[in-house]
Design a protein around this nucleic acid. Structure first.
Lengths: 146, 146
DNA sequence: ATAATTGCAAAGCGTTTGCACCCTG
DNA sequence: CAGGGTGCAAACGCTTTGCAATTAT
């Protein structure tokens, strides 16, 4: 247990709750994600940790950590940035995203109102639902003004 | 004008209609896409043309062609395959896709029933709509049996 | 004729992997 | 103290680009 781990018991607990070993690097990635208002790529998170936080974390570790956390359902992935994945610490309930194409502000949208339509589509085509992704892109009010 | 171009006047016309120069390579890519029931990646299309059709087409040309056709609205892109884009010759109307995760069968879904929900979300958060993508993944009836 | 298109090879870029060392549980 | 986690560098796979030769209009 070092300083970084003691700083935010909530994040440590988040890892433990998902059956993930607690390491300095994983806490650092989570801390950085928590500080991010919207979403961030693996490379961006790594650069921030290296430069701003003076962390010795390796890029591969950031990738491995995000991939693990995503598999465990601790973070969400968005693919609105072509060719690279964005990660985001999310609320637990199933939801979707509305992203501003200019400032990349992310708004979480709940499932209500969509479920009926979804259900109907799967039934109509005789598919068993596995997953669905909905990504809405627009221009937020602030960005419209400038 | 060579043999390949004479074979399918419909494809030639499709290019002309979108203001795209007609070349042997572009017609070959379109012909291959037309023969594809679902969707295919640039690399898959290229391999088919090279091996099955004995075409001398270059991989870069396939990429350039697909990118151009996508920009002109002649083909659609789907991103259900992680890390690489899939292309598909599509109907003109706006629509979405339901993809079988096992056999990759693609079913086109029309916009009806979704528009109201979409409209409501954009208005509620004071965003001006730019785009939206909806991708549903499931298991089709045939794949469930085996 | 001339500007766009092509094939090839090399470069780019995000991501993954092999391996020796380190640390958590 | 054993097995997972890490950092580094090299490998990977998809995509893009520079360039000289070719081709459509």
């Amino acid at each position: 247990m070092n300083a970084a781990q003691r700083t935010d018991p909530e994040l440590t607990e988040l890892l433990v709750r998902h059956g993930v070993r607690v390491t300095r690097q994983r806490l650092e990635v989570l801390r950085e994600l928590k500080a991010e208002r919207n979403d961030a790529t693996a490379q961006v998170l790594w650069r921030r940790l290296r430069e701003k936080e003076r962390s010795k974390i390796g890029l591969a570790t950031v990738y491995r950590t995000l991939s693990l956390l995503s598999k465990k359902g601790v973070v969400d992935t968005l693919s609105h940035r072509d060719g690279e994945l964005c990660y985001r610490l999310c609320s637990e309930a199933h939801h979707h995203h509305l992203v501003c194409s200019r400032c990349h502000r992310v708004v979480e949208i709940d499932e209500a109102g969509l479920s009926d339509w979804l259900e109907g589509v799967f039934v109509k085509h005789d598919f068993v639902a596995i997953a669905h992704t909905v990504e809405l892109t627009g221009l937020c009010s602030e960005c419209r003004e400038s």
